[in-house]
């Protein structure tokens, strides 16, 4: 494992825990898209079914279990515990426009036509667009709390670092996985606009708000 990959995983973990803590401490999930969080829970579940079939390392197993557990906890906080604070009126992205095309694509473009491989591929495609309901919500309300911005930034940095990891692996190991790379590129591009706003506004101590 190279440094980019490790820092990418840490950034991903930081994002997930940051969101959990934000909701827990403020006792509120205002401004958070429950739909994006459900999509991420689906992504982790579909991808990490190999927990039951394949042992890779203690690190790998622990991270997968933590990601899944945190993800389901977040969904539970939004739709059950702090349901009264959930901003459903602004969380109106139609997720079927993401789930259906990525599911069809996973059937058509995959490495191997087996159930686990198709589910893995589906999770890669779905992850690349799963943040759209959240970004849509931010654009609809025109603003995001600073801590939500930090969450989005850490989440975007994670896949960006994975891109460097893949360049590294291609160069030093001759390994590449085109499905992951293309989806990872799409995922990173979706964050670019947000990265710009984050760097120009949030890092200068301003709240992220979009021009009306």
């Amino acid at each position: 494992m190279n440094l980019f990959r490790f820092l990418g995983d840490l950034s991903h973990l930081l994002a997930i825990i940051l969101l959990l803590l934000k909701i827990w401490k403020s006792r509120s999930c205002a401004g958070i898209s429950g739909k994006s969080q459900v999509l991420f829970a689906v992504v982790f579940t579909a991808r990490y079914l190999d927990l039951f079939t394949n042992y890779i390392s203690l690190y790998n197993t622990c991270m997968k279990v933590v990601y899944i557990a945190c993800s389901f906890t977040t969904v539970w906080l939004i739709y059950s515990k702090f349901k009264a604070t959930y901003d459903g009126n602004h969380d109106t992205f139609r997720v079927e426009f993401l789930v259906v095309p990525t599911a069809i694509l996973a059937f058509l473009v995959n490495h191997d036509f087996t159930p686990l491989e198709i589910l893995w591929t589906f999770s890669i495609y779905l992850e690349s667009v799963a943040i759209l309901p959240q970004l849509f919500m931010v654009s609809k309300t025109g603003e995001a709390e600073t801590i939500t911005s930090h969450y989005l930034f850490a989440l975007g940095v994670y896949r960006t670092l994975y891109l460097f990891n893949w360049i590294w692996r291609y160069h030093f190991e001759g390994f590449f996985d085109l499905i992951a790379i293309v989806a990872g590129l799409v995922q990173t591009v979706l964050y670019c606009d947000f990265f710009y706003l984050y760097i120009t506004k949030v890092l200068k101590g301003k709240k992220l708000s979009l021009p009306a």
């Binding site: 390392s57 390994f175 996985d177």
Partner: peptide, 10 residues
Amino acid sequence: DSESKPKDEL
């Protein structure tokens, strides 16, 4: 190669 391997990435 781009073939299916044990998935060591997260």
